[in-house]
Amino acid sequence: ARAAEIVAIIAEEDSIVSYNYCSMAGFVLYLYDYLITFPAEAICFWKARPTGATVLFFLTRYTTMSVFLLEFAFGFVTFTGTSCVIPTRFVNFIETMQYLPWAGFSALRAYALSRNRLLSMMVFVLSIVPVAVNLVEEFVFVKPAVLPGTSSMCTLDGTESPQVSIGCVSFTIASRGSLIAADAMLIVITWAKLTRRRGGDGGSFVHVLLRDGTLYFICLLVLNSLHLSFNIAS
């Protein structure tokens, strides 16, 4: 049993290190994109009259930035005992809140294209399912743990039993499935409404909605499907 425990601890430490590397790679990508789009941000949003779109834009832009900066800063702090609980939960909470402006943007796109409040509300509700799922997972199943070994550092880890773990896979299915459904609804609305009006040039509003909407749908479909498949497979 002791050998099995040691193997489990090493596997856990290894998965934390892998996640941190992936997280840092994601942060670098985001930071790079932030820097190259900063001049466009200044021109399009700083100088323009503030609207609802401005609020949504800044929420999207700076919620993600604050998550990464906090995660980066906490990487330099050694948390012992259970001292990581409040800061880690705080970062995870903001990370979950990222989904709110994303859901707002999806709902606005749905409303702008269909002029149907019910449809727009459905897209919004489906898009915020990950918020509910993440909050339940974070505050019900994730508990502080001190991993013994070389680091002996405080970490937050899932403490669910194998039976509950199967339930957590259903959570992931619900969360990613609803996001895929919301994106699918949006792309259907976009294509149904705009394909007949695609004659506009490369710089038209309709062209941007079609091009960026389709790109967004394809990228997120691939990522959400990957997330879903890896979770079910594991």
Partner: peptide
């Protein structure tokens, strides 16, 4: 869960670029 480490920043990048492009042509 490592996919999330990429999907969240990528989603944020796609949405901000989408909003910037819309604002630029509006």
């Amino acid at each position: 869960s490592n996919v999330i480490a990429f999907s969240e920043p990528l989603t944020a990048i796609l949405i901000t670029r989408f909003m910037l492009n819309l604002q630029a042509v509006n």
